[in-house]
């Protein structure tokens, strides 16, 4: 009973905050709702017994991705009002198409019902609590053995994403002042000079500092 109550709490909040992500006028609020939505999804994972995924969701998505979103939204000067100008017109068509597809799916499934294949094995992918194997261990047992191909492919996809982001955004402009650590380290003492300052006089050579000569 308590589990069902929590399920509905998390599910309703997740859907409601998901809706607010796209409806909120202020983009910063949208990102905050996104974080709320992630937290509720993490709650759903806990109810399913997948606490490792719940932790990942909070650490990776809330801790890193959403904060990054927040930074991007605050740093980029994007006019969201202008972006949303055509939204209402498109939203009507989108809602119509989405509504038709949804109605069709609901009609189909309520008419015929969702039957599972007789060949389906009902084994739960999550080890029972009594087995003493934790969620994390169960994942670790298969991800580098049974699913190593998928794991490595996912790694290649992330590599492509990284190369792509660099190729499409990095600009090698001439005349940009960058910090060059190797040059700084290689500087010798010649950069500094100890001079004797006569009392009451100046050591600034007139040629090097034209503004001082004026």
């Amino acid at each position: 009973m308590a589990a069902a109550g929590f399920f509905y709490l998390f599910a309703v909040l997740a859907v409601a905050s998901g809706a607010m992500v796209i409806l909120a006028k202020n983009p910063v609020h949208a990102v905050l709702f996104l974080i709320l939505s992630f937290f509720n999804a993490a709650g759903l994972f806990v109810l399913l017994g997948a606490e490792f995924l719940a932790m990942l969701l909070v650490i990776v998505y809330v801790g890193a991705v959403s904060v990054l979103f927040l930074f991007v939204v605050m740093m980029l000067d994007v006019d969201f009002a202008a972006l949303k100008a055509g939204f209402i017109n498109n939203a009507k068509i989108g809602a119509l198409v989405g509504g038709v597809v949804l109605a069709e799916l609901v009609a189909l499934f309520s008419y015929r019902g969702l039957a599972l294949a007789p060949t389906l094995s009902a084994a739960s992918p999550i080890p029972a609590a009594s087995s003493g194997i934790t969620n994390t261990q169960a994942l670790g047992d298969i991800i580098y053995t049974k699913y190593v191909f998928f794991f490595q492919s996912a790694g290649l996809i992330l590599l492509v994403a990284m190369i792509g982001a660099i190729v499409l955004t990095l600009k090698h402009r001439a005349g940009v002042k960058r910090q060059s650590i190797s040059e700084q380290v290689a500087r010798t003492a010649k950069a500094l000079e100890v001079v004797k300052v006569p009392s009451g006089g100046s050591v600034i050579p007139a040629a090097k500092h034209p503004e001082a000569a004026e």
Partner: peptide
């Protein structure tokens, strides 16, 4: 499986 031919999920 014969009865799967009309399975909606599939």
């Amino acid at each position: 499986v014969p009865e799967m031919a009309s399975n909606i999920g599939l």
